[in-house]
Amino acid sequence: MSNKLDRDFYGRDTLSVAKSLLGKVLVHEINGKKLSGKIVETEAYKGIIDKAAHAYGNRRTKRTEALYGPCGFSYVFIIYGMYYCFNVVTEREGIPEGVLIRALEPLTCLEDMSLNRYAKEYSLLNKRQIENLTNGPGKLCKALLIDKSQNRKDLCKSDLYIEGNNIENISIKSSKRIGVDYAEEAADYLWRFYIKDNAYVSVK
Rank of each mutant, 00 (worst) to 15 (best):
N166D: 15
V88F: 00
C156H: 01
P137R: 01
N87S: 07
Y84W: 13
E105G: 06
S2N: 15
K196S: 15
N165Q: 12
K139H: 09
Y182M: 11
K173D: 09
E91H: 11
T134F: 03
L67I: 11
N31G: 12
S171F: 11
N31S: 14
G138A: 10
L160K: 01
P96H: 06
D181P: 06
L67N: 03
K196E: 15
R59T: 15
F77C: 12
K142L: 15
A53L: 10
I170M: 07
S74L: 10
L144P: 01
K24C: 14
S171R: 13
D197H: 10
S74W: 04
L125K: 06
I48V: 14
I146P: 00
I178Y: 05
D50T: 11
G32Q: 07
V89G: 00
H54Q: 13
E131N: 13
S114T: 09
I48D: 15
S171M: 07
A18D: 04
Q150P: 01
P137L: 03
E105F: 05
I95S: 05
G179R: 07
T42L: 07
V40S: 04
P137Q: 04
K34F: 03
L22C: 09
C85V: 14
G72E: 02
K148N: 08
Y161C: 09
M82E: 10
T14F: 00
N87W: 00
S202F: 02
C71M: 07
Y75Q: 02
K24E: 08
L140V: 07
K51E: 15
E93G: 04
E131I: 12
E91C: 10
E29R: 14
V180W: 01
D188G: 11
E91K: 13
R152S: 07
V88L: 01
V99L: 02
A52W: 03
C109W: 03
E41D: 09
Y75N: 01
E43G: 06
E29G: 04
K38F: 08
E184T: 14
F77T: 13
N58A: 15
Q129R: 05
